[in-house]
Each structure stands twice: as structure tokens, then as C-alpha cells.
């Protein structure tokens, strides 16, 4: 992704053979992080179809630097796309803990936000935020790929505000893993 120089805390100086740029470590690290959000695809139900559409040619997530990864060890973002059933909750937590810090979660769709149509079901976790900290909630049943793009842009805004001086940018909830021990 490019950098908009006018909006960047950056000092540019011409030197023979090119330009030298001086900027803050926060800006540089955040720019790198938000330009290469690699999501772990966690398609659990119908929302996963929209997530797949977002990766495909028409919407083309790659131009945001969003490349789907098949393993949690290479992922920064967990895209929980679909209904989290109680039987899937433990694998979800285990995979979340295997992701390296800093890690982010987008709850995609009403099911992952709050249970959605299954609000009174015996088998559904009513919102993935009951088992792990969520960064962006994306409403819709299912949300369109454009909405998912908007959620990723919101996450990029959030990453842009992170500071490394305290805890490598991770929030307190992210540091401790799940919001509540299960």
C-alpha cells in the first residue's frame, strides 16, 4: 500500500542518488502491520460464502494486502465468519491462542456478533466476544463483501493508532487471550 505523504509524520531529504525519509517507529510499524493483514479464514457458516467472494476476483482483497492463510501461525487476523456453535468454541479458542501477537478478530455477521437468528438456541455461542476479544463487529446476515472491506479498513484505522511503547501494541484483553477463562 502506498503512503499519503501529506498525512504522514515524515521528513524527506534529498541526498545524492535518492531521498532519505525519517519517520516515527510507531508509524512505520503500524504501516507495515496494517498493509499486510493476513487473516486466518474461519468460515463457519453461510457468512463464509461472502468472505470467499471478498477474496475472489471481483472484490479482490489482495490489493489491501489481505491474503488468506491456512494456519494460525502465519495469521494476524481471525475472521470469524459464521455461527459459532458451542462444540466449535474450544477449537476456536485453541486456534486463537496459537496466533502470534499482535492479533485481531473481526466478528463477521450477526451470528458472530450476538448469535443472530440463533439467539435462543441451545447450541450456539451468542457472540464470539463471549470467548475472545473482538476488534471489529460487522453486522449483517450475511454482510456483503463491501461491508467486510469496510470492516478491514476500520481495523486498519485501529492498527494505525497502536503504540509500541507499552505492550507491543496488543490490548490488555489480547494479552490475556480469551476475555474469560473457560
Amino acid at each position: 500500500m502506498g503512503i499519503i505523504l501529506e498525512k504522514t509524520p515524515i521528513i524527506l531529504n534529498k541526498i545524492p542518488g535518492g531521498t532519505i525519509a525519517l519517520t516515527t517507529a510507531d508509524f512505520f510499524i503500524n504501516w507495515a502491520r496494517k498493509s499486510s493483514i493476513w487473516p486466518l479464514t474461519f468460515g463457519l457458516a453461510c457468512c463464509a460464502i461472502e468472505m470467499m467472494a471478498a477474496y475472489a476476483t471481483r472484490f479482490d482483497f489482495d490489493r489491501f494486502g489481505v491474503f488468506p492463510r491456512p494456519t494460525p501461525r502465519q495469521a494476524d487476523l481471525m475472521l470469524v465468519a459464521g455461527t459459532v456453535v458451542k462444540k466449535m468454541a474450544s477449537p476456536l479458542i485453541r486456534i486463537y491462542r496459537q496466533m502470534p501477537e499482535p492479533k485481531f478478530v473481526i466478528a463477521m455477521g450477526s451470528c458472530a456478533d450476538c448469535g443472530g437468528p440463533f439467539y435462543d438456541s441451545y447450541s450456539v455461542v451468542k457472540g464470539v466476544d463471549k470467548i475472545m476479544p473482538v476488534d471489529v463487529y460487522l453486522a449483517g446476515c450475511p454482510p456483503r463483501p463491501e461491508a467486510l472491506m469496510y470492516a478491514v479498513q476500520k481495523l486498519q484505522e485501529k492498527i494505525g493508532k497502536m503504540e509500541i511503547k507499552e505492550n507491543s501494541g496488543a490490548t490488555a484483553g489480547q494479552e490475556s487471550g480469551a476475555r474469560r477463562e473457560l
Binding site: K86, Y122, S123, K126, L182
Partner: peptide, 17 residues
């Protein structure tokens, strides 16, 4: 999850989730 959920008289007991 205890009990048999598709029975019409099933009453859900709160579990850890």
C-alpha cells in the same frame, strides 16, 4: 449439553457459554 434438545419438553440449562 444435557438432555435431548429436539424433544418438545426440553428445557435448556445454562452451560458455560
Amino acid at each position: 449439553i444435557k438432555g435431548h434438545p429436539l424433544r418438545k419438553d426440553y428445557v435448556h440449562k445454562k452451560d458455560k457459554f
